[in-house]
Design a protein around this nucleic acid. Sequence first.
DNA 1: CATGAATCGATCATTCGTTATCGATAGATA
DNA 2: TATCTATCGATAACGAATGATCGATTCATG
Lengths: 219, 219
Amino acid sequence: MQSTTLSKATLSRLPLYLQYVRTVEGSMISATIIARNLGLGEVQVRKDLRMISQAGQPKVGYPVQQLRRDLEMALGIHQKISAVIVGAGKMGTALMDYDGFHEYGLEIAAAFDNHASQVPFRHGNMSIYAMSKLKSFCQQYDVRLGILTVPASAAQDAADQMVASGIAAILNFAPCHIRVPAHVIVRQMNVALAMAHLNLMVHQENKEQEETHYGKQIV
Amino acid sequence: MQSTTLSKATLSRLPLYLQYVRTVEGSMISATIIARNLGLGEVQVRKDLRMISQAGQPKVGYPVQQLRRDLEMALGIHQKISAVIVGAGKMGTALMDYDGFHEYGLEIAAAFDNHASQVPFRHGNMSIYAMSKLKSFCQQYDVRLGILTVPASAAQDAADQMVASGIAAILNFAPCHIRVPAHVIVRQMNVALAMAHLNLMVHQENKEQEETHYGKQIV
DNA sequence: CATGAATCGATCATTCGTTATCGATAGATA
DNA sequence: TATCTATCGATAACGAATGATCGATTCATG
């Protein structure tokens, strides 16, 4: 593992690389090809990859397997990461069945909901507990990550309970701002705003002229 | 509306501002307060807001209502935006019920699925059509935005059909890379990778020392 | 009315990120 | 073997984004 800290920009592109590299057939892959497929500059790709892998070779590129391992190592998904889901409504239960988690080393440890009875209920092979159990659960299993999928009206209250339970980072699907203390990170997953952003970009793209053959990917 | 193009960085923060401003009580709000609540620098906030609003006044700040209108105008959500959902599984149907869309001027025009029968089926007040109807629908109603919520194995095929239907931007929930032509924008919504990213940040944050009182928000 | 505090907005400096260029290397080919 | 090409990696130039500083403005207060 490399010791130099990765830049924020590089860090945000690593998931993109990993997601792409996992689809690559064959044993070798070059930065040129990756760049073309992701709509990035090839120098940038090379620089990013250089930060997390020493496996590049002139003329041949990177061994796919090794690059993939290096990316996973850099992203810290070589070991299981545990997270909880708070809010077992439509979105919450949909995420419980999301097929991407296990591929990326992520394990949803449990779900919590205000309307769960005190007795654990199950969804598939996942337990849904009452919110009152959140703190003891997170502390017992040392869970630091949470996905927030309650309605906007309940978001702040739920977030407060997550913070009190020791959650250090929240993926917020509720379409509203939540206030948290400085040591907690919130990543917004406001689908409506993401769409508004895309809509803007579509309008802006029309004024520009692109030369790459494949489409631009955004993290 | 301002004519100068907004920088990419500014653009990505506007949703955050709007989401926050909508929660503000009272008639005036200052950049200082906004910055503190979003974990950003106050100069940066002032600079961003300056780009989209001329309503700032020394000592008092911005009128909340006006700032909100300006943000909505800049984000282009003062008018209805239409989008389609492709994939009416758990995630797709959960998004149909997402409570954030109407607040942000977004209208889900219809949903499409491979397993829908030829006769339209309804979920709530939304129609679910067969994929074969996608192209004619998008062209008839001039829909340019799509949300992709099919399993990873079906993602590329579905994306191809969306592109062929005239979709210009895709919000991709499938945990995989999809290849699109250069004029199409893809925004990844890989929840697992977002969590991995958060996990990394939590580990990195521990090494730093933060001084702001409220937590850092990520778009 | 004079003073002070809070805020805006502009300029400048600095840091961060991207792009261009070039030499080095490994394989392919004549 | 000599040459050619694709690729890597490093350096340097460029551009974008952030942060610091300062004057200007407005309200509050004595």
